[in-house]
Amino acid sequence: MSVASLGMYDHPAQRWANEALWAAIASHLRAAGIDAPDALDRRPVEAVWRDPDLLLAQACGLPLVADPELDLTVVAVPSYAVAGCTPGRHLSRIIVHADDEAANLADLRGMVAAINAPLSNTGANLLRAAFGGIPFSDVKITGSHRASLAAVADGAADVAAIDAVTFAAIARYEPEAVARVRVLAHTVSVPALPFVTARHTPPATRAALRKALAAAAHDPALAEARDALFLADIVSASGQRYGEVARIARETALA
Results as ranks from 00 to 15, higher is better:
I95K: 02
V112I: 14
L105C: 15
A169F: 00
A217I: 02
D233F: 02
E176W: 14
R172I: 00
H200S: 14
E244L: 14
A198M: 00
L21N: 02
V181P: 07
A76C: 06
H11P: 00
A17Y: 01
V188A: 13
K211S: 15
D154C: 10
G243N: 14
D138H: 13
G133M: 04
A36M: 04
I248H: 08
A217H: 08
A81C: 00
D67K: 10
P44H: 11
L126P: 06
G239W: 07
R15Q: 12
G243V: 09
H28Q: 15
D41V: 05
P87T: 07
V112E: 00
I170P: 05
P118Y: 13
A221I: 05
P191H: 04
A81Q: 05
L91T: 09
P37Q: 10
A59L: 02
A207Q: 14
E176A: 15
L56R: 14
K140E: 11
A83Q: 07
S92I: 10
A17K: 01
L149F: 03
V183R: 07
P220R: 11
A13N: 03
R15F: 01
L184W: 12
L231C: 01
G33E: 13
D138W: 07
P87R: 04
A4G: 13
D100P: 04
V77N: 10
S120D: 02
A164P: 07
T197M: 09
R128T: 03
A57V: 04
Y242N: 00
E224H: 12
R15E: 04
S79K: 11
V3R: 15
P52Y: 13
V190Y: 05
V45M: 12
V178R: 09
T197F: 06
A130F: 05
L29K: 00
A81L: 01
D71V: 03
A81N: 03
R199A: 15
A164F: 06
E251D: 14
A151W: 07
Y242T: 05
P63S: 08
F167D: 01
I134N: 15
I141F: 11
V159I: 06
R182D: 07
E174N: 10
E174M: 12
Y9I: 11
D107F: 12
A117G: 14
M111D: 11
H11G: 04
S27D: 12
H145N: 09
A228Q: 12
A198V: 04
A216H: 08
A207E: 13
S92W: 01
A157M: 04
A32S: 14
H218C: 13
E174L: 08
P87H: 02
V139S: 01
R42I: 02
V245W: 08
S144T: 11
H200M: 05
L64E: 05
H90Q: 09
L91D: 07
T166E: 04
Q240F: 15
S92Y: 03
S236K: 03
C60D: 15
G88E: 05
R172M: 08
L108N: 13
L54M: 02
I34S: 06
V159Y: 04
A168I: 00
A39P: 03
A117E: 12
A23V: 13
A13T: 00
A237R: 02
T142V: 03
V112W: 01
A130R: 08
